[in-house]
């Protein structure tokens, strides 16, 4: 099967001259249709930049992004438009991305009507204006039900400020669904909602995958959430713009190989007192994250890594290499050492 989405050595710079930072540094990633891939890493490591390039909001400085095997920068206009519709993003802050002057009804109906008139223009199919509007209204109600905003009638005439954070996020999802996307980038989509509501949002997103075959790139800094959402998928770990490890979620969680992944897993505070006591933490050599303006040579983790092989790690950029347990690791020193955090 052709991957639905491929990144080939994608790089993105910001700024120029001495202020130039490499937010994303030559990353490659294949995502198969129906897969769930989580992108995890600390803030500033390039997750959102990657997500924005994938949905076409930001062009790569270098490298290629392929949608269904086609380079998006070489697409003709209809193909490009189709790709832009098929690949949608849900942002962290639904407040910022919803128009405060529109009701839920307007937010959902406007793209539906646009989408529908585009389609009927393409197919030449007619149908009265009135019946089209009725169809659209029915579809809007369906979408709100899919995202669990029920009873629908209670929500249609509300403005964003009248909704809770979780409800706003559901509206964002419903709006993304109006164009029947094949691929959704969810960038910290549940980070801002309360813990008690997070899970129901995640379960709703999982259902979209099951029922509508949506492929997901789930971006989060929270490894526990990544584990829950992508247990049947993969996790990709980024550090300072590069992929340092990736693999099937169960392997990555229970037997991580890259020292950075291990440091993250060990550091995650656990909502269980016994576990919190038992867990082993990796002592890093430095607590400070280097600046993108002044990246260390070789493995960018070397100033902090307790396993550093001097003369090697600080000169050569370690390649991402496959391991037989699944996935790949960019650390020749530790890639063959099985681990367990507890």
């Amino acid at each position: 099967m052709t991957p639905i989405l491929q990144l080939r050595n994608v790089t993105r710079y910001f700024g120029s001259g001495r202020d130039r930072v490499t937010a994303v540094d030559s990353i490659s990633l294949d995502i198969e249709p129906g897969e769930i891939v989580c992108l995890v890493g600390e803030s500033g490591c390039g997750k959102s930049t990657t997500g924005r390039m994938i949905v076409g909001l930001l062009p790569p400085s270098d490298g290629q992004i392929l949608y269904q095997g086609q380079d998006i920068s070489a697409m003709d206009k209809p193909d490009y438009q189709q790709y832009r519709r098929a690949v949608q993003i849900i942002h962290q802050d639904p407040y910022a991305s919803l128009n405060p002057t529109q009701t839920v009804r307007q937010m959902i109906m406007t793209p539906l009507l646009r989408h529908q008139s585009q389609r009927s223009a393409q197919n030449g199919s007619g149908g009265g204006r009135r019946s089209r509007r009725r169809d659209v209204e029915r579809r809007a109600a369906e979408l709100l039900e899919i995202v669990d905003l029920t009873p629908v009638a209670e929500f249609l005439d509300k403005y964003p400020h009248q909704l809770s954070g979780g409800q706003r996020q559901r509206v964002s999802v419903a709006r993304a669904l109006t164009v029947e996307p094949k691929f959704i980038v969810a960038d910290e989509a549940v980070s801002m909602v309360d813990v008690s509501i997070r899970v129901s949002l995640l379960n709703m997103l999982s259902r979209l995958k099951e029922e509508f075959d949506v492929t997901f790139l789930f971006i989060t800094h929270d490894l526990a959430l990544a584990k829950y959402f992508a247990w049947e998928g993969r996790i990709t770990v980024m550090y300072l713009g590069r992929i340092v490890e990736e693999g099937p979620t169960p392997r990555l969680i229970t037997d991580s190989r890259h020292p950075y992944t291990q440091a993250l897993l060990g550091a995650v505070p656990e909502a269980d007192p016994e576990l919190a006591k038992k867990k082993t933490h990796i002592e890093l050599r430095s607590a400070e994250i280097p600046s993108l303006l002044n990246l260390p040579a070789g493995c960018t983790f070397h100033p902090r890594c307790p396993y550093i092989a001097e003369g090697e790690c600080d000169t050569v950029v370690p390649p991402l290499e496959r391991i037989s347990e699944g996935g790949s690791v960019a650390c020749p020193v530790r890639m063959s050492e099985p681990t367990q955090i507890i």
Binding site: S196, V199, N203, P250, D272, L275
Partner: peptide
């Protein structure tokens, strides 16, 4: 409602 990272997969449920 809160997942832990260490250990196997656990079902979670949210508060309605």
């Amino acid at each position: 409602a809160v997942p832990t990272v260490t250990g196997g997969f656990e079902e979670l449920s949210s508060i309605p």
